[in-house]
Design a binder for these strands. Structure first.
Lengths: 199, 199
DNA sequence: TTATTGAGCTTACACTTGTACGCTAATTTA
DNA sequence: TAAATTAGCGTACAAGTGTAAGCTCAATAA
């Protein structure tokens, strides 16, 4: 294995270790450098060969999480194209994502309101991506003017994220209820926006 | 000053000290017992005369914050009664609250998605109060059936909290924009719910 | 082949943390 | 007045933290 390969592999190990530490009771700011190093199987001081700070690692994690989100969107679009209703399919896809990658979603959720301005800004950026894409999609499929489509998209994304947050602390049966509820709420918004725009 | 009075006063000092530490970059879990004691002007070990844990203090803070929220609701209702529109007045009252008691709102916001299950549950309880009251209000003023009123209330509260979160990181001009946007979104929901209920 | 680089290690240090233990001194009770 | 209670303090300790300094040794470059 080349030196560069090895370094990348260790970097990966650090990132994965950090994600694995982010369970229900840990936030980025509560994870220590030494803990991450321990979990990654390296000496504490070796950490510095890869990241300047624990904060630099944190931003990397947020970026990775955002990447996952974008993959999620792509997946959702594919499923929408093959029928089933936009709202239904999107919410279902999102909920599946949360279950499958709960630590990733938890990271975004937690740092969204976390103690680091840099992290909050980074998460907000990722959510904005989401909103922009949904706004475009809404405009092209419903013909809603930008203002309305954007307000609708923002409201929808926020509600879905909020439902996702609750889902993290819920069992499977309650998750189904949550999904059902948020779908109805999204329909409220879609209809209300349509009406307000006078379409 | 009686012994009991003195003790209550110190307890107050601890609570206020804790709130004062909860600025943009601190969460409950990142505040140490020693820090709180230092800020309250007592010895670290004296803390235990008042709270079993730092966690017990945390729950007390969440309760106090919830109390503030309920006062806010009462205030909003008074202002609604004296005219100005429900949505307008409520959002304005809420935004004023956030500015005036940013540390209190920040606490709720942060612990809502924080690392302690107990704190998350406590905050959720406070938010549920909010939703229940808004549901009742909605039913009595619009005649919407419970299911719809409840879904509407939940969506509204979540959006307002979410806007409040953004407001915390914004200047006055942007806060005005945020308020305007969330008001429109609330109207989407109100109209959409009305339509869906077939009223 | 030899010299350089650099990922990872060990050791070390100065801090901060929670909290156990026992004391003081003032209030409350008897 | 005498005894009991207790808020608050000081000391102490084990455990964890970030990170500086300098070493090793294998991969790369010359």
């Amino acid at each position: 294995m080349s030196r560069q390969e090895q370094k990348l592999k260790t970097r990966r190990a650090i990132i994965e270790a950090a994600f694995s530490l982010l369970d229900e009771q840990r936030s980025l700011s509560s994870v220590s450098l030494r803990e991450v190093a321990r979990a990654a199987g390296i000496a504490p001081t070796s950490f510095y060969r890869h990241f300047k700070d624990i904060d630099e690692l944190g931003l990397t994690l947020v970026d990775e999480a955002g990447l996952n989100l974008r993959q999620l969107m792509r997946q959702a679009r594919l499923r929408i194209a093959s029928g089933g209703g936009v709202i239904n399919t999107s919410v279902d896809t999102f909920m599946e994502f949360i279950c499958a990658h709960s630590n990733v979603f938890r990271l975004l959720l937690r740092e969204h309101t976390g103690t680091s301005l840099a992290f909050r800004a980074a998460v907000l950026r990722e959510i904005q991506h989401f909103i922009v894409e949904l706004t475009d999609y809404t405009m092209s499929t419903t013909g809603l003017p930008y203002q309305y489509a954007n307000l609708q998209a923002e409201a929808m994304v926020k509600l879905v994220f909020s439902a996702g947050a609750e889902a993290l602390d819920s069992g499977a049966e309650q998750q189904a209820v949550l999904a059902q509820r948020v779908k109805l709420q999204l329909r409220f918004i879609a209809n209300g926006a349509k009406e307000a725009a006078g379409v």
